[in-house]
């Protein structure tokens, strides 16, 4: 069972690598759309990356309105 902090850390690392953003420039409470500079199609990419990495299903509507990494981590944590 992963801890919430570990989940958050893995999300930040994964997002930084996938969207080629320096890891140190991402912080947990930051708006990830702005931090990663991603559009709607790239948001789907991120969703798929996270599902594949954590081996979970994340229904799109559960992430609607989620904009920061910490809340995203909590949603994933709830399905681990």
């Amino acid at each position: 069972m992963e801890t919430a902090e570990k989940t958050l850390d893995e999300i930040l690392t994964l997002a930084a690598a996938h969207f080629k953003v320096p890891r140190e420039k991402l912080s947990p409470d930051e708006d990830f759309f702005k931090a990663l500079g991603i559009d709607s199609l790239q948001t789907l990419d991120l969703l798929t990356k996270l599902e594949n990495h954590f081996r979970v299903e994340l229904p799109d509507y559960e992430l609607q309105g989620v904009t920061d990494f910490r809340t995203l981590a909590a949603r994933i944590q709830a399905r681990l």
Binding site: L44, L47, T48, E51, N52, E57, P59, D60, Y61
Partner: peptide, 8 residues
């Protein structure tokens, strides 16, 4: 639901 599925 209109939700999306991944390939897996």
């Amino acid at each position: 639901t209109g939700r999306s599925f991944n390939a897996t």
